[in-house]
Nucleic acid binder design. Structure first.
Lengths: 267, 267
DNA sequence: TATAAAGGTGAATCCGCAC
DNA sequence: AGTGCGGATTCACCTTTAT
């Protein structure tokens, strides 16, 4: 079934990747049930954009609609969140886990909906940015973290992958905690466009994905990213000998990701 | 109106405190509207601990099994949360702010409801515990944080207190970030009962409250804690010359708090 | 008295399999 | 679903006891 969808793919090795162009809410139902061992999701939290794209009854929003209550963007964002999280839960294997990253703008809504859908939280990991953007006006605390929710599919789920010893080794022989000190993705790792500007506004550091993938999947496992963006998940998955599927709606990001994987693959 | 409620109180100074015995959902409606400059709330987390946990040396972990932390369902917890947060919003001054602390068990639900009620999040501060309890079985990451949501009353609110320079001074001259490294409340600071056991299962460190109160209130301001517990908020508020109101449902905790304030007051 | 060793403990959603 | 058993599993800090 996957092959019927428009996608770029490699073939043959234990680190194959597929990239699908489109909305994950449309594409995920075409993937086989329970076929994915690990999901990493970095969903958008641009409420304004989402309000333009979705509403609870699935129709497109065009202009002012006075049937909205006082929190239209929250409601539409919640509906969007419920849909992609539900679609992810269908393709997640019964012994799989999911990671979702977000900031205080969206992570509370996302976490609440994950709980409502039956996901069972294992940890809330804090990505502690060692070089955060300062709050120039001094009106708040410098926002130095993003939150990753790590969850299994259900409360009753017995089996899931956690490579405790691998994490311990990455932490000087001591048990890894839920606080990960990792710098922002900058410098050579940050992908630039033809004008030298950053090609993607929220490119995640590979070090972050390395911890996610190493801790909660094994070699040969299939990893899914429903909001692939610049392709970090597929790139790190391949480096660590995991298979991967990426889904990305914006053709320009798909191009960036494909080029990144092609380039890095020849290195 | 406050005086008509059963409460213990001091009189006269800029650091007066009042402690009310009862459920904050019942008591808050009796307090004047918009009368409080700062709220710190440490509500039940609804931990849902379902079994006993032993350390590797076979000793039993003294978990939080208090009945006040038990809720029959997410829905009932959400309804409870909506009620106390609404009641708090009524008594909060139009230029005031609120802090709510929680863990991954509850903070996503709390944050979502805060947003729905119109609160506008300023920061999600991470209390990074320097000495957390390890994950003894090695099946998850050591849970090393609790989350504090700091919010103003509404998106449109222009004024609120943030003592940027005070925070900067507490951080070696550098802008304070949203990650606070503070140890657990242990040792002499931890209040013990007559048997030498911890008097409250979730007593917060004074260092945490100091940052909260110093950053977002001024001397003479009125601080409210709707879940006073062992009285840390009132104790720190008095030390920092803030007036305070504490509400606590459990008579045994009220006694502890009153005794703590009486004792410390004579020092 | 000083130093070392031993013991206690913290908001925790903490095992997996065979029978 | 309940029981029993083999096996893997812990960090920082404070207090108490021992040398």
């Amino acid at each position: 079934m996957t092959q019927q969808l428009p996608c770029s793919q490699t073939g043959g090795s234990a680190a194959d990747y597929h990239i699908h162009t489109g909305n994950c809410i449309d594409i995920l139902p075409e993937l086989p049930e329970k076929s994915v061992e690990l999901i990493f999701a970095d969903p958008p939290y641009n409420l304004q954009l989402k309000q333009e794209l979705y509403r609870p009854n699935q129709t497109l929003v065009d202009g002012v609609d006075d049937t909205w209550d006082q929190f239209p963007s929250f409601e539409s964002y919640d509906e969007f969140t419920r849909q992609w999280l539900s679609a992810c839960r269908r393709v997640l294997a019964d012994d799989g886990t999911i990671w979702v990253i977000g900031s205080y703008h969206n992570i509370f809504r996302v976490g609440k909906i994950m709980m409502d859908l039956g996901y069972w939280i294992l940890n809330d990991v804090q990505w502690h940015k060692t070089n955060p953007m300062p709050n120039f006006r001094g009106v708040r605390f410098t926002n130095a973290t993003e939150t990753l929710i790590w969850a299994k599919k259900s409360e009753k789920q017995k089996k899931y992958t956690f490579n405790h010893q691998v994490m311990k080794q990455l932490n000087e022989g001591k048990q890894m905690t839920s606080v990960w000190q990792i710098p922002l993705c900058t410098g050579a790792e940050r992908i630039k466009d033809e004008h030298g500007k950053k090609a993607h506004s929220t490119q995640k550091p590979e070090a972050l994905l390395e911890r996610v993938i190493l801790s909660s999947s094994n070699e040969g496992d299939l990893v899914l990213d429903p909001f692939l963006g610049s392709g970090t998940t597929c790139a790190v998955a391949r480096k660590l000998n995991r298979r991967s599927i990426g889904i990305e709606q914006e053709p320009r990001y798909v191009k960036i990701a494909e080029n990144r994987l092609k380039t890095e693959g020849t290195q």
